[in-house]
Design a protein around this nucleic acid. Structure first.
Lengths: 206, 206
DNA sequence: GTCATCATGTAAGCCGTTACATGATTGC
DNA sequence: GCAATCATGTAACGGCTTACATGATGAC
């Protein structure tokens, strides 16, 4: 999972580990976060298999978060100082970029149809990166999720065993409602996808 | 976690591993399920620490365990196996009951205030067993959960970083809504708890 | 010069899984 | 007698966390 998340973030721009972790925790929602103990080994692993590569000294800077200029040079400098933006001179930083091979791996992971991947987290992560997918694959992803949720829902409804106290009952009821709302949400996403499909060309030329 | 679940189920009645697993998966909702690879080691561990104990031959077991012990099973063959192989001995069902010590452990786990236990699963499990708790502790449990959810919610709302596509936005929006509904749910449970508190005596006499 | 932050990493361990191996009981 | 199910267990591994160790850089 962490590999997929890393690849997805690196598709936008090269990043070093520290920044990567920050984005996983902040940009991608408060639900996300891997520890360094996960992150750095994952980076080494991905580098070893050729999915990512260290950005060399000669290559374009791994600089991050280009802030649109406000027009004031002084203001920019002050803001940079206040935000403690990392300066490009650091020798110890290792920025990584995604390689073509990593790109393949990423797509493979994104379109993989593991029947056991009912996980909420996994779907969330895939959804966060599904903009890199062609529309039909995107629809397929959503429909797979819908099917999983439907199955989950019928199981949840079936499990109405009478022998339970009000806490357990409330728990199950709440759980069932949650699944129902997830289902509605996915349906909305699907509807949006389908209403946009005819506009594909416009989007492409935009 | 599995220890807690086991203890909670055994508080109702003695059960053997196989049945325990079935209940975890069925009775407790479709979201639950531990594999045997988790369950049996956990049972041994709990037995070793004295939290649970094997139900003896004379004692009565649940509906399934009505069959009396067969006594000795081919003593010679068993001995022949045991002299070389320590593990693959005889296989009879072993029903466990909770001990007073296990009861203490259970309560401790149920009322434990680990700040890191924001997990949904953990709360769900605790709620499923909170009927064993006195009302004030129950309220405390719910209020802790409410606090956690509140914190989670503010973090989720704060993370409205502009740079995100519509999928990520939808994801975060849906996530925020989910937390809000969880919060409402916990509030409902709290309200119910408080409206029942004055009725304690009536309930007790009923 | 020292403190907070940035930055990279390792070691140990936790908590669970899958796959495997074995044996007992029941029903046909 | 033979398959399906019940029943118990082990081995190997997976993926992530916590705690630790190290060092560079910038601000005051």
């Amino acid at each position: 999972m962490i590999d997929f998340a890393i690849l997805g973030l690196l598709k936008d721009q090269p990043l070093h580990g520290y920044e990567l972790k920050k984005r996983l925790g902040e940009t991608l929602g408060s639900l996300w976060g891997f520890s360094y103990g996960s992150l750095y080994p994952a980076l080494r692993r991905l580098e070893r298999t050729g999915a990512i590569a260290v950005v060399g000294a000669g290559e374009s800077a791994p600089e991050v978060a280009a802030i649109p200029s406000t027009g004031s040079v002084k203001g920019e400098a002050a803001a940079a100082r206040l935000r403690r933006l990392p300066t490009p001179g650091r020798r110890n930083r290792k920025a990584y970029r995604i390689t073509p091979r990593g790109d393949e791996l990423f797509t493979e992971l994104l379109t993989a149809d593991d029947p056991g991947s009912d996980t909420e987290r996994e779907f969330a992560l895939k959804l966060a990166f599904c903009r890199f997918l062609p529309v039909p694959d995107r629809v397929a992803l959503l429909e797979r999720r819908r099917a999983d949720l439907g199955e989950h829902l019928t199981r949840a409804r079936r499990t109405r065993s009478g022998k339970s106290d009000r806490y357990t009952r409330s728990l199950m009821e709440h759980g069932t409602k949650s699944i129902e709302r997830d289902l509605e949400w996915v349906d909305d996403l699907l509807a949006a996808e389908r209403s946009q499909e005819p506009l594909k060309q416009e989007e492409a030329t935009a």
